[in-house]
């Protein structure tokens, strides 16, 4: 995956799409491409989360203990584990590859360093998370 392709993918992800190209470019430098086979478990419910996964291709099933059916299926450009970028709490569900999947992975420490160096990136995340929170509040009310 060439750097431009990473930027193209990141630009499609809602978490980063409102950032400036320059910032997306910086984030692309700390991402790594990872490919897994069908059935690979990305993380288990209760694991300590320390990375964000962006689905480049394939599908990911989100499974919760005690629930038979997957609670969600994630597709291209979806992302999982975004809160792990800001804290290191445990995962709330298990994520399992459904078919071969390619991800862009961002480690907690890398994004933290980047956010320290370029506060506008952290500010961009805050804006996105606030907008998600607003939407959730609007839905719940």
């Amino acid at each position: 995956m060439i750097p431009l392709e990473k930027i193209i993918v990141l630009n499609q992800v809602p978490l980063f799409s409102s950032l400036k190209i320059e910032d997306i470019h910086k984030i692309s430098t700390i991402t790594t491409k990872e490919t897994y086979e069908d059935g690979h478990i990305l993380f288990h419910e209760g694991d300590i989360g320390d990375s964000l996964f962006i689905v480049v291709s394939g599908k990911v099933k989100i499974i919760k203990q005690g629930v038979d059916q997957p609670i969600a299926i994630l597709n291209e450009n979806d992302f999982l584990g975004e809160l792990s970028l800001f804290d290191a709490e445990t995962r709330t569900a298990t994520a399992c590859c459904h078919g071969e999947c390619t991800f862009l992975v961002i480690e907690h420490d890398d994004i933290e360093q980047l956010a320290h160096e370029f506060p506008e990136i952290a500010f961009g995340f805050i804006k996105v998370l606030i907008s998600r929170m607003r939407n959730m509040l609007a839905k719940s009310s």
């Binding site: 431009l4 930027i7 193209i8 630009n11 499609q12 400036k20 190209i21």
Partner: peptide, 13 residues
Amino acid sequence: NKTHDLITKILHE
């Protein structure tokens, strides 16, 4: 095109 959205964003910037 794959780069369509990216080019749009660049032009906007």
